[in-house]
Nucleic acid binder design. Sequence first.
DNA 1: TTTTAAGGGGTAATATATGATACAAAAAAA
DNA 2: TTTTTTTGTATCATATATTACCCCTTAAAA
Lengths: 110, 110
Amino acid sequence: MIQKKSLPTEIISTLSQLGEHIRIARKRRSLTMDEMASRMYVTRKTLSRLENGEPGVSLAVFALALWVLGLDKDLPNIALPEQDKVGVFLERQRLPERVRRAYKSDDLDF
Amino acid sequence: MIQKKSLPTEIISTLSQLGEHIRIARKRRSLTMDEMASRMYVTRKTLSRLENGEPGVSLAVFALALWVLGLDKDLPNIALPEQDKVGVFLERQRLPERVRRAYKSDDLDF
DNA sequence: TTTTAAGGGGTAATATATGATACAAAAAAA
DNA sequence: TTTTTTTGTATCATATATTACCCCTTAAAA
């Protein structure tokens, strides 16, 4: 953990991509690293680590970057339960074959 | 930073949502926290901090969770440059009004 | 009901991130 | 070109994450 060496390749690659996306968005907005870092309430070094895709950077730093750039709208949709097809399938599969009502004498109408 | 108190409300809320998404996806897959944590090569406590939306959790832990759950396909699309409408607009705006070729006597044909 | 397992929460030790600062390299602007 | 700004990199101090334990409460299963 936190060591690039021990991480799956896909994850290393994904984090690099995310860093690159942030760097591009920052440059398009003509923000220097110092400027953007101060708006994020972090130091330039921390922003640098984020843009370089270093795995140890905290989620808060990541979210702050997207927030400062106005690119945070998609983040809450990650792993959204209603979009999780496998999850929905598994949940449905776990339903019992037959349902049996718990008997209560005065609860026979609905 | 890293202190919930000093973070924008939207970010606190977003991180909580992401943690909840992961927790739901884990339960749907009938994974205990111990089971999932070990597949992520982290401890149960770290996974717990992620599911609770704690801002200090590293990006690697987040990405590993999505990866273990098979929910990592959307992550690389966050802040995607071609979807960044503001960014594309700003970039276009920066184009010069007129273009002028740098004159080179032997480079007049193309 | 009894039994078993899951998850919440604490502590100490260690690893790592983050901040603060300085300096050099590279790029942009004049 | 020269000058200025931006960025890369290094170091040290401090804050925090992460691990590896622990115990306890609660929920699930028998």
